[in-house]
Each structure stands twice: as structure tokens, then as C-alpha cells.
């Protein structure tokens, strides 16, 4: 057993969005704070104190988690992916991000990164995508602007399902965007 009983700070190395990052963190530092304050990762956001809102959602070693309920020290040696990693290498929006824009699935944008992470996980899980399953799958992420309706549509559209175009917008226009 190699444990330093006294250390309250430590050095960690985490691969964040494909880049190896080394930092000196306090034992108590939450992963979300390290990502935000030390690495200027703006995907994970803080919207509550209790793990309800999901705004801080990231993938940690391919597992979807709320980064406000993980210590930075716990991620030492691991991989973390934030919403900043979703776009294409050329900076273009990926399919899910495009659907979010096309179906107006974001307003203030504060919950968006967390929503995208959860939706990405849901879409890659192999679970059947239905109105019901998307609503259930996204219930760990709170949005206070959109009423979720368009988020559900965007996720379903990203899964290749046919969903009605936004009001005032012909379906073919959405296709062409």
C-alpha cells in the first residue's frame, strides 16, 4: 500500500479532450473546478450544489458522469472528455450539435454542453431511441429555457428519426442547413 497519509494536495495527469494535462490539485478539488479553473474548459458548468442539474456532465474513461460529484484526484491517470471535444477537427459542428441548432434545442446555452454529453452517450449506447427513452435518458440534465421539447426533437433527429421542423421552417430547409 503506497499512501501518503498527510498529503492534501497532489499532482495529477489527466488526458482531457485528447491532450495530456498535468496539474497540482488539492485533494478536495472537484473535477469540474479543475477542468474549469485550471484548464479553462467551459463545457462543464455548475448549475446546482447537489448533482441534480447535469450541467457539469463529462465522459470519464468513456463513462458519463457529473463532474461535480467526482474529485479531480480520482481522475488521475484517466481520460476525460468535455463538450469541447465534440466538434470536428476543422471546427465544424458534429451531427448532434447541428441538430441542436436546427431544432432550436438551446436558448441561453448554459445547460447545452451537459445536454450534448448526455445525448452523445445515449445515442452511442445502442438503446432504442424513442420520445420516451430520450426523455428518460435526459432526465439527469435540467434546462430552464427550452422546456425540453426541442432538445428531445434534436436528439431524435440526430438518431435519424423524422421529427417535425421548427415552426416557420420547412422540413427541407432543415435538411439543407
Amino acid at each position: 500500500m503506497t499512501i501518503d497519509h498527510t498529503a492534501e494536495t497532489r499532482e495529477i495527469t489527466v488526458t482531457v479532450d485528447g491532450r495530456s494535462e498535468t496539474g497540482h490539485v488539492s485533494d478536495r478539488t472537484l473535477l469540474v473546478h479543475w477542468l474549469r479553473d485550471a484548464l479553462d474548459k467551459r463545457g462543464p458548468k455548475i448549475g446546482c450544489d447537489t448533482g441534480n442539474c447535469g450541467a457539469c456532465t463529462v465522459r470519464w474513461d468513456d463513462t458519463l458522469v457529473k463532474s461535480c460529484m467526482v474529485l479531480a484526484a480520482q481522475a488521475d491517470g484517466d481520460e476525460v472528455e468535455t463538450a469541447a471535444a465534440l466538434e470536428g477537427e476543422d471546427g465544424s459542428l458534429n451531427r448532434l450539435q447541428r441538430c441542436f441548432a436546427d431544432y432550436h434545442a438551446l436558448q441561453c446555452g448554459y445547460c447545452t454542453s451537459g445536454m450534448l454529453m448526455t445525448a452523445t452517450d445515449l445515442l452511442s449506447s445502442g438503446e432504442e431511441i424513442t420520445e420516451e427513452s430520450v426523455r428518460r435518458g435526459m432526465k439527469g440534465n435540467i434546462c430552464r429555457c427550452t422546456g425540453y421539447h426541442n432538445i428531445v426533437k434534436a436528439v431524435r433527429a440526430a438518431a435519424g428519426q423524422e421529427v417535425p421542423a421548427p415552426h416557420g421552417c420547412a422540413a427541407q430547409e432543415v435538411e439543407s442547413r
Binding site: M1, I3, S26, R28, L30, L71, Q74
Partner: peptide
């Protein structure tokens, strides 16, 4: 949203964990 000061320990076996729990007040 911030934690109080604390130590983070990661034992490798259940026995080590139990030892830590009883050793450390």
C-alpha cells in the same frame, strides 16, 4: 459547491481500506 479540506486516500485492497478507516480518525 466547494468541499471542506480533506484528504483523499485510495487503498488497493479491502483490507487496506478497512485498516485506513480504523486508523484514521
Amino acid at each position: 459547491m466547494l468541499l471542506p479540506p480533506l484528504r483523499y486516500l485510495r487503498p488497493e485492497t479491502p483490507g487496506d481500506a478497512a485498516a485506513l478507516l480504523s486508523e484514521m480518525d
